[in-house]
Each structure stands twice: as structure tokens, then as C-alpha cells.
């Protein structure tokens, strides 16, 4: 059995690890609160925007609007993977990476050329270690992504799509359903998929300017907003995953401390018993 001093030293080291993981847990919890709020505040805009677009789109407009172009065949597609810049968040990044590998594999099976874009150091490290070719990489998206971030990512892709250099754009990101449910998801951004349940409200009244002009202004906003939502949802999911991972680590540390404390007590007791036995033995030897 390890001696008491050795155990004491380990207890000290686990104590300090626990302090760190607990602090990280609390930091993640407060960041999660703000990130969740951003996810919720993004909803009304997204809902209304897609509602208006849904009501503006007609089969005739779908023919002329370049962002609504439905390619007959997909020859080249862009896949944008969102991961975090920092680790220590459990299986968060590996789940996203697996989802990205799945979609890349499926596109490859279908004979589609792939432009692979990766956001976040964790994803970039993984794929550069495996020599996977990446078209563009970014590590400058922070904990609170902005609409400008989304725009700067989406605009070049939309241009390539309009120029028919690519035929589809997919985003692999976390979907924030709740703190516990943040499954990795693949969203198709382009071509824009317009749900065709047109029961809500029907056609419009006064349109200024024409429906075609309004649509061609709003579709880019919609596409950027899809990216924005993916960014904020992934950011929130990351904080949720980190909080959970750090909570598990803290709990584990506590368990280990309990066990070590018990071993320490036992070792200490054994030492004392031994010392008493030695003293008794010495005393007996003197008596004789």
C-alpha cells in the first residue's frame, strides 16, 4: 500500500484539478445562458423571414431567381463544417466531425466533387492531420458569432452558386434543441428549399417593388440567416457540452478524492499501529 504522504500529495493534486474543472463548468454555464438567449432571440427574425419568402415564391419565380435554381445534377458541392476552437467539451467536436465525414462520404459515392470548408481549430486539426484537403479554414469565429461573420462566410459561397461553380451548399453544425439535445445536423442552404405548404395567408396584396425584386433582396438575407443560426446554435451547443464535460470531470474528481481520503486514513492508521507495535516490542525487549 502506498504510504500516507504519497496519498496526501495525490489528494492535493486532484483538489487543484477539481478547482479548475469546477471553474470551467461555471464559466461554461454562464456563457451557455447568454448563448441560449441568442439562439432564442434569433428565432422571430428567421421565422418571419421564411414565412414571407414562402409566400412570395411561385413556380415562375423559382425559374428565374438564381438562388432558387434547382440543378438537375449536383456536380460539385460545398460542405461547411462548424466546430469549436477549444476542446474540453466531451464528444461535441467528434460528433460533428463524424457527421461531416458521413456527408463527404455520401457525396463521394455519388460522384460529387467536394469543396470542404472548416471553421474551428478542432475540426481543422483533425482533418489536416489526416491530409484531407480543405478549401477554406477559419478560426476567427468567437463565442458570440455575428451576422457579419455569417455574411462573410456565406457571400462567397452564394456567388459561386450563382455562377454555377457549385450546385449545393451544406452546413454541418449542431442543432440546439435543448441544453441536453444538440444533435449534429446537416442543413442544405443552397439551393434554398422553400416548404410548399402555402395554406398560411396565401398570396400578397400590395407589393412594392415587385415580388421578384423583393424576393431577390430577401433570399440572400435568408441564406445568411441560415448560416447565422447555425453559428449561434453551434456556439450554444459547445458551451452546453463543455459544461456537461466539466461537471462530469468535477464529479469524478470528487469520487476519487473520497476514495483517496479513505486510503489515506487506512494508511495512516496502519502506520500508527505499526509504530505502537514497534514501541511495545521495544518495551518488551527491555523488560526481559
Amino acid at each position: 500500500m502506498a504510504n500516507a504522504r504519497e496519498i496526501k500529495r495525490r489528494i492535493g493534486s486532484i483538489e487543484s484539478t477539481k478547482t479548475i474543472t469546477r471553474t470551467m463548468e461555471m464559466v461554461a454555464a454562464s456563457k451557455l445562458r447568454r448563448a441560449r438567449q441568442r439562439v432564442e432571440e434569433a428565432r422571430p427574425y428567421a421565422d418571419r423571414l421564411s414565412d414571407v419568402i414562402r409566400r412570395l415564391v411561385s413556380p415562375e419565380l423559382a425559374e428565374v431567381e438564381p438562388l432558387l435554381r434547382q440543378p438537375e445534377r449536383i456536380d460539385r458541392a460545398a460542405v461547411v463544417l462548424l466546430t469549436s476552437n477549444r476542446g474540453l467539451c466531451g464528444p461535441f467536436n467528434s460528433n460533428l466531425i463524424r457527421e461531416a465525414r458521413d456527408i463527404l462520404g455520401r457525396l463521394e459515392d455519388d460522384g460529387v466533387e467536394r469543396d470542404f470548408h472548416v471553421v474551428g481549430s478542432e475540426g481543422i486539426d483533425y482533418f489536416s492531420f489526416r491530409d484531407v484537403e480543405m478549401e477554406r479554414t477559419r478560426t476567427d469565429i468567437e463565442d458570440s458569432p455575428t451576422v457579419e461573420d455569417a455574411r462573410s462566410m456565406m457571400e462567397p459561397l452564394a456567388e459561386e452558386y450563382v455562377a454555377e461553380e457549385i450546385d449545393a451548399v451544406y452546413i454541418v453544425a449542431a442543432r440546439f434543441e435543448s441544453v441536453m439535445e444538440t444533435p449534429p445536423t446537416t442543413r442544405q442552404v443552397l439551393p434554398v428549399h422553400v416548404p410548399d405548404d402555402r395554406d398560411g395567408g396565401g398570396r400578397f396584396y400590395i407589393l412594392d417593388p415587385s415580388d421578384e425584386e423583393i424576393l431577390s433582396e430577401l433570399l440572400p438575407l435568408y441564406v445568411v440567416n441560415t448560416m447565422y443560426r447555425s453559428l449561434v446554435e453551434t456556439a450554444a451547443a459547445e458551451q452546453g457540452a463543455r459544461r456537461r464535460a466539466m461537471k462530469d470531470a468535477t464529479d469524478n474528481a470528487e469520487e476519487m478524492l473520497d476514495e483517496l481520503q479513505r486510503s489515506y486514513n487506512r494508511a495512516r492508521q496502519a502506520e500508527i499501529t505499526q509504530q505502537i507495535a514497534e514501541i511495545m516490542g521495544g518495551a518488551e525487549a527491555l523488560e526481559e
Binding site: D208, E213, E217
Partner: peptide, 18 residues
């Protein structure tokens, strides 16, 4: 609005404007 200012008061006709 895209082509100048627009004012909306109570009971305005349904409208979507850029």
C-alpha cells in the same frame, strides 16, 4: 422604403415593401 419614405397609420392596406 427602397424608393423613399413611407408612413403607416392605423388601418393601412396590407402591404409588403422593401
Amino acid at each position: 422604403a427602397h424608393d423613399g419614405k413611407i408612413g403607416i397609420l392605423h388601418d393601412h392596406a396590407p402591404m409588403t415593401v422593401l
